[in-house]
Amino acid sequence: MTGDLFAALRAPTIEHIADGATWLRAYAEDDAAALIEAIAQVTAQAPFRQMQTPGGYTMSVAMSNCGELGWVTDRRGYRYQREDPLSQQPWPEMPAIFLALAERAAAAAGFHNFLPDACLINRYTPGARMSLHQDKNERDMSQPIVSVSLGLPATFLFGGAGRADKPLRMRLESGDVVVWGGPARLRFHGVDTLAQGAHALTGDCRYNITFRKAG
């Protein structure tokens, strides 16, 4: 059992980490249980799957999507598409609680009138990680990225304009939200290997909900 299982409630705070990037600590904590329930509803329709990169590597992170567009990767490349490749059906509708949180968090970070049309849901289990990358498959780079952490804590790597730039290491707790856009929109970022642990809401895993304006 770890201390994360009975983590004390934290007061929300706002920290500006770079020009265009904001860390909203504990911002989604009050909504965490409802967000987990919404994830379950989405993934009942579009189950988690470990996608394959264009180079043939199977990702350690399991993924699903909701909204008008979903991010996918396979041997044909990285892209957004309207249909789930497993079911050939449209992705599930984005839950209202997701939309409300994304718009509210973006505004708190200085990006008003954010209306995402894509939501990528990542599930990390111990040993899973996300290498440094840029979010650059979206058409409208004027819109921010809103990233919500739920469950086990993880080390978020927030880098610079180049892959070789040394990243800032941020320990994200459940309920934390990171928003980046403007001059920070194409900064490299990733997640270090998830450590073993237990969380009251998610057990031995971490969920990350990432909102984007893709179309």
Rank of each mutant, 00 (worst) to 15 (best):
T2S: 15
G3Y: 06
G3S: 12
D4Q: 14
L5G: 06
A7L: 12
A8P: 03
E15D: 10
E15Q: 15
H16M: 09
H16F: 05
I17M: 05
A18V: 04
D19Q: 13
A21F: 03
A21K: 00
T22H: 03
T22C: 15
L24M: 07
L24C: 07
Y27A: 06
E29W: 06
D31L: 12
A34I: 07
L35C: 08
I36D: 09
I36Q: 11
I36K: 14
I36R: 15
E37Q: 08
A38P: 03
A38V: 10
I39V: 15
V42H: 02
V42N: 02
Q50K: 11
M51R: 13
M51E: 11
Q52C: 11
T53E: 06
T53W: 02
T58L: 13
M59T: 15
M59R: 09
S60N: 05
S60G: 10
M63N: 04
S64V: 04
G67F: 02
E68L: 07
L69G: 00
G70Q: 01
G70D: 04
W71A: 00
T73L: 10
T73V: 15
R75I: 10
R75S: 12
P85I: 09
S87R: 13
Q88F: 14
Q88E: 13
Q88C: 08
Q89R: 12
A96M: 06
A100N: 13
A100Q: 15
A100F: 11
A102H: 00
A102Y: 01
R104E: 07
A105M: 13
A105I: 07
A106P: 01
A107H: 13
A109L: 06
A109Y: 00
F111Q: 00
H112D: 11
H112R: 12
L115Y: 12
L115C: 14
D117A: 15
D117P: 04
I121Q: 01
N122M: 10
Y124A: 02
Y124P: 01
Y124M: 06
T125R: 13
T125I: 08
R129L: 09
R129G: 03
M130A: 04
L132G: 03
L132E: 01
H133A: 08
Q134S: 10
K136E: 14
R139E: 14
M141D: 08
M141H: 11
Q143M: 07
Q143I: 02
S147Q: 02
S147K: 01
V148D: 00
L152R: 01
P153N: 08
F156Q: 00
F156K: 02
G160P: 02
G162F: 15
R163Y: 08
K166V: 11
P167L: 02
L168S: 08
M170K: 10
M170I: 14
R171P: 04
L172T: 00
L172Y: 01
E173I: 05
S174T: 08
D176E: 09
D176P: 05
V179Q: 01
V179F: 04
G181E: 01
G182D: 09
G182V: 09
G182C: 05
P183R: 09
P183K: 10
P183T: 08
A184Y: 01
R185F: 10
L186P: 00
H189V: 07
G190M: 10
G190C: 10
D192I: 09
L194G: 00
Q196P: 03
G197R: 02
G197M: 04
A200N: 12
L201Q: 03
T202L: 01
G203Q: 09
D204F: 00
C205H: 13
R206S: 03
Y207I: 03
Y207T: 02
N208L: 04
I209H: 00
G215W: 07
